[in-house]
Nucleic acid binder design. Sequence first.
DNA 1: TAAATACCCTATAAAAATGGTAGGGAATAC
DNA 2: GTATTCCCTACCATTTTTATAGGGTATTTA
Lengths: 137, 137
Amino acid sequence: MLSKKTQYAFHALTYLAENYSKGPVLISEISQERQISLKFLENILLELKKSGILGSKKGKGGGYYLIKPADEVHLAKVIRVLDGPIALLPCVSLNYYEKCENCTEEICGLNRVMTEVRDSTLKVLENKTLKDILRSR
Amino acid sequence: MLSKKTQYAFHALTYLAENYSKGPVLISEISQERQISLKFLENILLELKKSGILGSKKGKGGGYYLIKPADEVHLAKVIRVLDGPIALLPCVSLNYYEKCENCTEEICGLNRVMTEVRDSTLKVLENKTLKDILRSR
DNA sequence: TAAATACCCTATAAAAATGGTAGGGAATAC
DNA sequence: GTATTCCCTACCATTTTTATAGGGTATTTA
């Protein structure tokens, strides 16, 4: 399951996408509109910024904004930034790979099946973008 | 990611499948062969029994055994028993559905996409069985 | 250049989930 | 009736999750 953090991230990002033309948006505005605890949201937006999804501007008239248009922000990327691996096992993760103990990948049947699961999940998440989850369509 | 519990369950179940002809197998034997803490494994096997995947026999000559042949035990079922929902959001879970707060499903874009993810994941996990993850093939 | 604005960063903490342990109870075989 | 083996409940330590607090730093504007 996706963490609250990731779910909040999606809510915040769609809000930013829907208000793209307004320029930088205040954390407090997103917090109020999407009912997310202000300080928690602050951390989330910071992580999204560090990962290159958002930009920010300080001082009056500042706030957060999408660096790329909504249809270039892939859902898989957002999940990876906040929740980490999408795969069901570390040994089949593309971005967070870790070797299994007590299990040789070549002969491990679970490894084979979970690779299949990963690929079919990514086929969706890497081809869907923020644009696909906007409210106003 | 799958919990250790679920991963151990798969290891135990494949061991039982590979020794299907032997009849009931001791917890302690599975524990040793697959390097799983005895008491932790005990809990796992009990859950698998309660959910109808395993049968058990007490007293001398007792142990745990698969109720159905390996190719009738679907991976999705095992995951659901030990880890709960397979879906990425409660509001798209088939077996553990919960309504979202602050979000109407009809207009929620995330709901639509995560339903797609769920379906593509289940397409794999509901069609693969223990037989597909055995070591000896 | 001072004051207001708004993001930046670190630390802390409560609550929940995870991973594992303990010990006696109940059924079965001999 | 005794040894065997699963059954069941409770407990515990650690980690992760979900926040909260509070000051720091950069920017704008007057």
